[in-house]
Each structure stands twice: as structure tokens, then as C-alpha cells.
Nucleic acid binder design. Structure first.
Ligand SMILES: [Mn+2]
Ligand SMILES: [Mn+2]
Ligand SMILES: [Zn+2]
Ligand SMILES: [Zn+2]
Lengths: 141, 141
DNA sequence: CGCCCAGTTGCAAACGGATCGCAATTAGAG
DNA sequence: CTCTAATTGCGATCCGTTTGCAACTGGGCG
């Protein structure tokens, strides 16, 4: 959903004053190429395919740092593992296929608006939210 | 949200053929009395206040069983711990106060309907969903 | 260009919530 | 009351994530 700042990740890191090390460069490359919502193990696997020897703890630490900088977004779906994607320029929510685990993105202006509306009715201000629709292909099985 | 089958939990267990043991009786009592969304540690604490000696593994196992029977609902909010509430007769979603952790329930027919609508548009059938609004009291802070 | 140090890394240990194996106990059907 | 399958307590174990620490290095500065 909304790819655009493809090359920006590495540059953004430089701007934020993060050191561009070997491991980090590869992790950024993997993240930039990712079209899905990989967990840490999967990221580590992809990194290892490019350059073996990068420790998984480094992947964890890098993801923490990137999240703090707001460069990536962290999710926890039903399996409980941390998953990541590049911070989208415009917010979206997710379908998750209960059989395959495949994640599909969507955005509903109406739902977003209704959330604000109901929060206001309760006297709240929304800080963040999470909407996940666990689905299966219609009619088949 | 929608209390009603207050006494039913224990009876429901009997119907499902679950043995009513000492520990289980206390756990059911705690669950029936709960107005919130306690995690396992909190449940165990409340159980211990009534009858010490019940192991936390027993709480875990009982919650698993009750969930399988559909008598309670299991949630995982942002802190990652398992939380429970009696299965509501009508579905609802949650506000979570980001400062206090307090959980408030709400239901929006419109949002529920829009979820179905957008799922259909994508060719999906919704199996379950999760909507959590992380909030703070409006204008204060 | 080379120095130097704060930031980063690899590795192993620790963490914490949840689960499991096992032997002892017990609910409750007959 | 008997008998068995379900349940329990306890400790060990799992597994994803975090952390302490010593070694390493990117990149600003001289
Ligand atoms: Mn996404
Ligand atoms: Mn609830
Ligand atoms: Zn949304
Ligand atoms: Zn809902």
C-alpha cells in the first residue's frame, strides 16, 4: 500500500545520525525490498542470504532503533510475534488470512472517521489504534 | 457491557461436562465477579485471596479449557499478556487508556457493518476481528 | 589521512509469559 | 463404595525477546 520512498530508508537513517554499518546496511536493504510483514526470524533469514554472520540480536536492536525513529512500524498479529513494515506515508489496516497467514492491506476512510467519532462521544482522544480482520476467501474453504 | 448470565458460568461448565473441583469453583467465582479484563497473574491473585494454594498452571489450564468451550474470551492487548473476560452475549470492542491501562468497552454497529462491507469488497469472509482504540482523556494531559 | 571514542556488534546468558510431563489426587458415574 | 478418567501441584521447559559485556568500527576531528 503506497510504495514511494523506496530509497529513502538509508538516507533517513543517515539524517537521524545512525551509523551505517555493514549489518545495518543489509538490514535496511532487506526492509526496503520487503513487500510484506516479516517477523524477526524471517528478516534475519533474508539478511543472512545476502551476508551471513549478522546476529539475530542485531536485527532486534536495529528494528528497535528504527521503530524509535519512526522509520518502520511494528505489529503483533495473532501469532504473537513482532512483525515489521516500512512506515507507510498513509495509515492502513490489515486483513489476515486465517489459513495462509497472508496479510493484505486496506484503508477505510469511513471506519477511520467513525473511530474518531465514537472516541469523541466517550470523551477520548485516539492515540493509536489497531484493526485486524481475520478472514478467509469468500465461499470457498 | 451487557451483564446478565451472571450465575451461568458454573452451570455452563457442568453442562459441558467439566468437573467442578475446588480450584475450578474458585476460578469460576472470580471470573463471574470480574468486571474488567484481568490477566492470568491477576486472576491468580484474586483466586489466592479466596483460597490459597491454587497453582497458576491450574489457572492457565482452566482458562484454556473455558476458552475452548466458548465460555470466556481471550484478548491480547499491547502489553502482550493474555487477558480474559466472560464471553459477552453481544460482541464489543475496546478502548484502552494508554496512561492507566484502563479498558472500556464499546460497540459500533456502523463500524461492524463497514468491516463486513470492505471484507466483501475484497472477496473475504470475516472469521473474527480485533479493534482496539488506544486513547487518552480528551483535552487533559 | 590516521586517531579516537561513542555507537554498534556478536555471543551467551537472562528474562518472562506460557506450556508441558509426571506422579498424586479426586470428581462423580455406576 | 469403587473405579477410572479428569484434574492438580510442582518443576522443568519452551520460545521469542532483551540484555551485559568485551571486542570492533564508522565517521567526525585534528
Ligand atoms: Mn501493513
Ligand atoms: Mn471486553
Ligand atoms: Zn485504521
Ligand atoms: Zn468489533
Amino acid at each position: 500500500m503506497t510504495r514511494a520512498k523506496q530509497k529513502t530508508l538509508l538516507e533517513a537513517c543517515r539524517q537521524q545520525g545512525l551509523r551505517i554499518t555493514g549489518p545495518r546496511r543489509v538490514i535496511l536493504e532487506v526492509l526496503s525490498a520487503a513487500e510484506d510483514h516479516p517477523d524477526v526470524e524471517e528478516l534475519h533469514r533474508r539478511v543472512a542470504a545476502i551476508e551471513p554472520g549478522v546476529n539475530i540480536a542485531t536485527v532486534y536492536r536495529t528494528m528497535t532503533k528504527l521503530t524509535e525513529q519512526g522509520l518502520i512500524e511494528r505489529h503483533v498479529f495473532e501469532d504473537g510475534r513482532l512483525r515489521f513494515e516500512r512506515a507507510p506515508e498513509v495509515h492502513h489496516d490489515h486483513f489476515i488470512d486465517v489459513e495462509t497467514g497472508k496479510v493484505v492491506e486496506f484503508r477505510s476512510e469511513e471506519i477511520e472517521r467513525l473511530q474518531e467519532e465514537i472516541a469523541e462521544k466517550y470523551g477520548y482522544e485516539i492515540v493509536s489504534h489497531r484493526l485486524e480482520l481475520y478472514v478467509r476467501p469468500r465461499s470457498g474453504s
